[in-house]
């Protein structure tokens, strides 16, 4: 497995998209944190969670980057070269998932602490010390959520094999569908509460009222969705002609 991980690491880092994705994710999240901090009128009431408002930008970029890491392999048929070199397709794709997830976690880590850092610089008087479990979760949770999101995006990429389709599905789902269902009368809110990205919000910013699971349970659920999708994707990739 270390061989395969090293292989996928070389593959990922010898193309350009992960580099500009990393740059975009960090620039957008930290930049947004900076804008928010600069405009804060009452620094004494500024909260840790406010430094992380931009995490959704990073999340979207991570989804796009992770999906592209797979779909470009299909587009340029390097997936076939991959399966020739590593006929065990599940192992090859797991290694890819591992590497893409690791990069996403790293992006999340830098984005979260970077956002916190610039906020502290701009607002030295704000109470931004991480001295409660919820505050820790709001910051350290970002890389965890990015990691799971990467697994989901890789799985969707393997299933759809098409950049445009995979990105459209991922972005429309996470930004639009989950919010739209809220508006269905009676059951909308309950359905929404069980949606994967809503769970990730509960983990990062919760606990909110009337959510079915606590913060860590919500993260487990979110991760479970990722693992289930990944298993389905691996099963499909094994059976399909490459």
């Amino acid at each position: 497995m270390t061989t395969l991980l090293a292989t996928e690491r070389i593959k990922l880092l010898t193309t350009r998209s992960p580099w500009w994705s990393t740059l975009a994710a960090l620039g957008l999240t930290i930049g947004f944190a900076l804008i928010i901090a600069l405009n804060a009128s009452r620094p004494a009431e500024f909260e840790v969670s406010q430094t992380q408002f931009g995490y959704q930008f990073g999340l979207m970029v991570v989804l796009v980057m992770a999906a592209l890491a797979v779909t470009t392999e299909y587009r340029f048929s390097t997936i076939r070269a991959t399966f020739l070199a590593v006929p065990n397709r599940a192992a090859a794709l797991l290694a890819k998932t591992g590497v893409v997830t690791a990069l996403s976690v790293l992006i999340g880590l830098v984005a979260a602490f970077g956002s916190l850092g610039v906020s502290m610089l701009v607002l030295p008087d704000a109470p931004l010390a991480l001295d409660s479990a919820a505050e820790w979760r709001a910051v350290i949770g970002v890389p965890l959520v990015f990691g799971v999101a990467a697994v989901i995006a890789v799985a969707v990429g393997v299933l759809l094999r098409q950049s445009a389709g995979a990105i459209a599905v991922l972005l429309i789902w996470s930004m639009l569908v989950e919010n739209l269902v809220t508006l269905i009368p009676d059951v909308g809110q309950d359905i929404r509460n069980w949606m994967p990205f809503a769970m990730s919000e509960q983990f990062l910013l919760g606990p909110f009222d009337e959510r079915p699971l606590g913060p860590w349970g919500s993260l487990a659920y979110f991760a479970g969705v990722g693992v289930a999708l990944l298993i389905a994707a691996l099963a499909v990739a094994r059976r399909r002609d490459a």
Partner: peptide, 13 residues
């Protein structure tokens, strides 16, 4: 095997 010379990522050296 060489099945198709274009099975290369265009941005990779």
């Amino acid at each position: 095997a060489l099945l198709d010379a274009k099975w290369v990522h265009p941005n990779r050296s």
